[in-house]
Amino acid sequence: MSTFKQLQEIMASALELPTDAIRENSTMEEIEEWDSLGHVHIMVALEQAFDLYMDVDDFAELDSVPAILQYLAAEHAA
């Protein structure tokens, strides 16, 4: 499964949305359910799925699907 597909499922589950509501260019601004609480759920789910320990100061910057994908790519490279 591609990283995007995985992310799509994680986010849809965390926000209780259908999978196709999450697109490759989705941002926090345009998805109503992606509020500050939904954001914490996404971050927690990401950590568990990708076995990460994220810095809380990074949370705020990960406010779009491209930003999250970029972060995951960097983490995997590291």
Binding site: A14, V44, A45, Q48, A49
Partner: peptide
């Protein structure tokens, strides 16, 4: 379970 597994 993880958050995602709990949801499923």
């Amino acid at each position: 379970p993880t958050l995602q597994q709990a949801g499923k």
